[in-house]
Simulated scan of single mutants.
Amino acid sequence: MPKPRFTQVSLEDTPFYHCISRTVRRAFLCGADPYTGQCFEHRRGWIEKRLLHLAQVFAIDIAAFAVMSNHLHVVLKVDAEKAQAWSDMEVVKHWHQVFGGTLLTQRFANGEDIEHYFIDLLDERISEYRQRLTNISWFMRALNEPIARSANKEDECTGRFWEGRFKSQALLDEAAVLACMTYVDLNPIRANMADTPERSNFTSIQRRINAAKQGGQPKELLPFVGNDRHAQPKGLVFELQDYLRLVDDTGRILRNDKHGAIQASSRQILERLNISQETWLNITKEFMNMFKGPVGSLPELTHYSENLGMQRVAHASSCQHWAN
């Protein structure tokens, strides 16, 4: 039986989560449906536009994403501190960008005077919105429900478009985050939808590459901020160019289905993470088959399980994949 979402999320252990949504009834997100001959490529744009919009609304950053033919991958980072720093007005305005709110919160957002006997109710509602803006279930709900309605309208049908629940995995350490991001970014290459990362449409890696060509990083995605240093800004603690090279090296080997050369800078990242090249290639090729639950080293898995009140270490056998 699937576990409630709150029993799988522990922000004390990690803010990073890998989420996957799949369609039902042979529904297509994009590409051509071989059964009907219809083309649904435009739906990839729906997903990407909505996803990037929500990253500006929620206190949740996007580290990686890939829109495939019948499923979506996204790596999210919850930023609880950002939500706590928002004023009450900011919280309400963020929420109203996606949901209607209540008559009371609408009055508050419009600057109207609120009667004293409504203040406690307003405070309660704002507190609820603040919590929801850091909740991955609400994020995925805000992503999936509008897409389902639009797809059903286009298909002239009713019923579920997505599976009942999205799947999520806690990513408990740097190695897990980087491996999952690379796995997600290389999805189109493994699926033969693209031959290079820069040609992988509707993916985070394509956005990062295009922005890097202009000397920057996409503002919609969680940035790479380099190695640990004093007063370091929030982001991924690797160099952008090192990550792009690592993904390209890995993609070339996976695409050619043979062992190839990992360049020196890429090897340095793997050495820092204590992952052998062979293990890295196996993980980035078979991530979803290897890991059915939280991902990380045994110590991290142990802490995660204890903090969630589990009687045994969750998916302890998974930690063997990190061994060199």
Results as ranks from 00 to 15, higher is better:
3 K>Y: 05
18 H>L: 11
20 I>K: 13
24 V>T: 08
26 R>M: 11
28 F>H: 12
28 F>E: 10
35 Y>L: 14
40 F>I: 03
44 R>M: 09
46 W>C: 03
55 A>P: 02
57 V>D: 05
61 D>A: 02
63 A>D: 00
64 A>H: 04
65 F>D: 02
67 V>Y: 09
75 V>F: 00
78 V>P: 00
81 E>V: 15
83 A>I: 07
84 Q>F: 11
86 W>F: 12
95 W>K: 08
102 T>D: 09
103 L>V: 13
111 G>Q: 11
111 G>L: 06
112 E>R: 06
117 Y>L: 08
120 D>S: 14
124 E>A: 10
128 E>R: 08
130 R>T: 15
130 R>L: 08
131 Q>R: 15
136 I>W: 01
137 S>R: 06
138 W>C: 10
141 R>S: 14
143 L>D: 01
145 E>R: 06
149 R>E: 13
150 S>W: 03
152 N>W: 11
155 D>V: 10
155 D>C: 01
159 G>R: 11
159 G>W: 10
162 W>A: 09
164 G>H: 13
170 A>C: 09
175 A>M: 09
179 A>E: 08
184 V>T: 12
186 L>G: 07
188 P>E: 13
189 I>R: 10
189 I>Q: 04
190 R>H: 08
191 A>I: 06
192 N>P: 02
195 D>Q: 13
196 T>W: 06
197 P>K: 14
199 R>W: 06
214 Q>Y: 06
216 G>N: 07
216 G>S: 13
217 Q>F: 14
221 L>F: 11
222 L>I: 00
224 F>T: 05
227 N>Y: 13
228 D>S: 13
229 R>P: 05
238 F>Q: 04
240 L>V: 06
242 D>W: 15
243 Y>D: 11
244 L>Y: 07
248 D>K: 12
249 D>V: 07
252 R>I: 07
257 D>M: 11
259 H>S: 02
272 R>V: 02
276 S>H: 06
277 Q>I: 07
279 T>A: 15
290 M>V: 05
290 M>I: 15
299 P>K: 12
303 H>R: 15
306 E>C: 03
306 E>V: 10
312 R>I: 05
314 A>G: 00
319 C>Q: 10
321 H>K: 00
322 W>N: 07
